[in-house]
C-alpha cells in the first residue's frame, strides 16, 4: 500500500480542533485525515478512531458507515482488534482475517462485510482515557511493514492534539444548572472580596451592599457582581453615604 507524501502537520491538527464543534466531529476529522494519509481509495481502506474515557461513554468516529458498523460489532462482542489495541495500548495487526484465529465471531462479521485485513494502533493520551486508530482494508495483507510503521508514527503525531481535544471537550462533571450556580458563586465571591477590600469591611456587610445595589437598580445580584468584578470598583458608594 502506498504511503502518503507527508504526515499531517500540527497546524492542520489545530485547525481541525478549532473548527470542530463537537468532540465526535474532531475524531471524524482525525479518522478522515488518517484514511487520506494511507493514500488509498477510500472504498478499499477506511479508518475509525475509538476513545474510551473513564466515567464517560466511549466515542467512535468513522470515515465510513461500514467502519462504524464494524466498530459497533466489537463493542457488542466486547472483543476485537480495536478494543484490544485500546485496552492493551499495543498495536494489533490482522494480516488475513480469514486465517487469523484470535477474533472468533468478529472475524466472520468482518469477512461478511468484505474486510480482509485490519490494523489497530494505540494513540497515547493521558491516564483518564485510552484511544486507538483502526484501519480496515478489503484486501488481505494490505498493511505491510512500511504502512504499519507509517501509521504508528501518525498515531504518535495525533497524541498531543487528542490530549488537547479531550481537555477541551471534557465530559461535563456538573449538569447545567449546577454549573450556572458555580459560575455565579465565583463571580459573587470575587465581588464580595473586592467590596470587603474597598470598605475594609466584613463579608456580611459586603453581602448587604450587594443586595442593596441589586434592589436599588432592580437587577440581579449576579449582574451587580459581574459589573463590580469587570469594573474593578464598587460604584454604588453612594449607598453607604460615601
Amino acid at each position: 500500500m502506498a504511503g502518503s507524501d507527508a504526515l499531517t502537520t500540527s497546524d492542520e491538527y489545530q485547525d481541525l480542533l478549532l473548527g470542530s464543534a463537537e468532540f465526535s466531529d474532531f475524531l471524524l476529522g482525525l479518522a478522515t485525515m488518517s484514511a487520506t494519509l494511507l493514500g488509498a481509495d477510500t472504498r478499499t481502506v477506511f479508518c475509525t478512531i475509538t476513545v474510551e474515557r473513564n466515567g464517560a461513554p466511549s466515542t467512535m468516529s468513522s470515515s465510513s458507515d461500514l467502519g462504524r458498523r464494524l466498530d459497533e460489532r466489537q463493542y457488542a462482542a466486547d472483543a476485537g482488534p480495536c478494543l484490544t489495541a485500546v485496552r492493551q495500548q499495543s498495536a494489533v495487526l490482522v494480516e488475513d482475517m480469514a486465517t487469523d484465529q484470535r477474533w472468533g465471531k468478529y472475524a466472520q462479521a468482518a469477512l461478511s462485510e468484505g474486510v480482509q485485513a485490519m490494523l489497530a494502533v494505540p494513540i497515547r493520551t493521558d491516564d483518564s482515557s485510552r484511544a486507538a486508530l483502526n484501519c480496515y482494508a478489503r484486501k488481505a495483507h494490505a498493511f505491510d511493514e512500511e504502512t504499519v510503521s507509517l501509521l504508528e508514527t501518525h498515531a504518535a503525531s495525533m497524541s498531543r492534539i487528542l490530549r488537547l481535544a479531550l481537555r477541551l471537550h471534557a465530559p461535563q462533571a456538573y449538569p447545567e444548572h449546577l454549573r450556572r450556580a458555580l459560575k455565579s458563586r465565583a463571580v459573587v465571591d470575587a465581588a464580595i472580596a473586592l467590596i470587603m477590600l474597598q470598605h475594609r469591611g466584613g463579608r456580611d456587610g459586603a453581602l448587604e451592599l450587594l443586595q442593596l445595589a441589586a434592589v436599588s437598580s432592580n437587577r440581579r445580584i449576579q449582574q451587580i457582581a459581574t459589573d463590580i468584578v469587570d469594573g474593578g470598583s464598587f460604584s454604588a458608594a453612594r449607598l453607604d453615604g460615601g
Binding site: 449546577l178 450556580a181 459560575k183 458563586r185 459573587v188 465571591d189 464580595i192 453581602l207 445580584i221
Partner: peptide
C-alpha cells in the same frame, strides 16, 4: 434543592 443551589450561587 433548586432554591438552595440558586442561593448558593448568589453567595
Amino acid at each position: 434543592v433548586k432554591l438552595w443551589t440558586y442561593y448558593y450561587g448568589i453567595g
